[in-house]
Design a protein around this nucleic acid. Structure first.
Length: 275
DNA sequence: ATACTCCCCTGAGAGC
DNA sequence: TGCTCTCAGGGGAGTA
């Protein structure tokens, strides 16, 4: 379940290995992975494109190909592995890129939720997904005023609003719970009822949690080429997410689990009161 | 415009 | 052992 820190870690490792390489061919075994353009166009466009850089935007991995971008969203379970053409294709390898050095970069995704987009740099800013992404957590434009503006008409619980990628991008279900716990805000509180302090706390702790996770990512992820994938990241440092029935690390109250917007949500009912 | 619900897809784990 | 059921969750589509 990659969120921003995991995506950044994967992107960094891909960059170490792939900058300067060229895509010579791509085979697609599950068409739904290709979100844009058509599968046929995607195959044709990717050929002979050289990887200039690899970065992230929100939870998307951004392959800078000079004139174009290859964008990859791992969704829940997407992973990359390096193989050679001799290796038998595994059950969940859905997209196989062959590189100019004979190696293959294979996209593995058990649940087939991941998405790939090939788009020109010119077209990208006004086109999904870039056109619908909000601010990165480190962006200096992410301020109380920004959140106030975007939350003022939202009666949705703040938990759901934090997952809205068009406001702040990169936060997923796990870190949303952690950020709200540290901010001592009930996940059920409607976004338009947050105080100024609440909003500033969210910004502060979002930066703290995500930065810490990014640092941990550098050491915890063994290798995205291994069967380990990106599992286990930051698990030891989680305070409430996944801790149903355990005592709150703050006050000892039993941590609850509820469903908010269809997502499992963990919180301490004592520390995170719906004021 | 916002906010619901359903769906994508598979495997793991629980319960019987 | 093995069946059925529920859950995991990022995000898009359709609908009210």
């Amino acid at each position: 379940m990659p969120e921003k820190p995991e995506v950044m870690t994967v992107a960094r490792k891909l960059k170490d290995h792939l900058v300067g390489r060229e895509f010579k061919n791509v085979e697609i075994f599950h068409d739904n992975i290709i979100a844009y353009p058509t599968v046929q166009e995607f195959k044709e466009n990717i050929k002979n494109k050289k990887v200039v850089d690899i970065t992230t935007r929100g939870k998307w991995i951004v392959f800078d190909l000079g004139q174009d971008y290859l964008l990859v969203h791992l969704r829940m379970e997407g992973k990359f592995f390096y193989r050679t053409p001799k290796d038998v294709r595994e059950k969940h390898e859905h997209v196989i890129f062959t590189l100019d050095n004979g190696e293959q970069l294979r996209y593995h995704d058990v649940r087939k939720f991941g998405k790939m987009v090939f788009i020109s740099k010119e077209e990208a800013p006004s086109h999904k997904p870039f056109s619908e992404l909000g601010l990165e957590f480190w962006d200096s434009n992410l301020t109380d005023a920004y959140l106030k503006e975007h939350y003022q008409n939202k009666s949705l619980p703040i938990k759901s609003s934090l997952l809205d990628q068009s406001i702040i991008t990169g936060i997923g279900n796990i870190y949303a719970d952690e950020i709200l716990f540290l901010s001592q805000i009930s996940p059920l509180l409607p976004a338009n009822r947050l105080t100024k302090k609440n909003r500033n706390d969210i910004i502060f702790y979002a930066r703290e949690v995500l930065n810490e996770a990014i640092e941990a990512g550098g050491t915890t992820i063994r290798s995205y080429t291994s069967e380990e994938g990106v599992h286990g990241l930051f698990q030891q440092q989680l305070k409430v997410h996944g801790k149903k029935g355990e005592p709150c690390p703050n006050c000892g109250e039993i941590i609850l689990k509820v469903q908010i917007g269809g997502r499992g949500t963990y919180y301490c009912p004592k520390c995170q009161k719906k004021k």
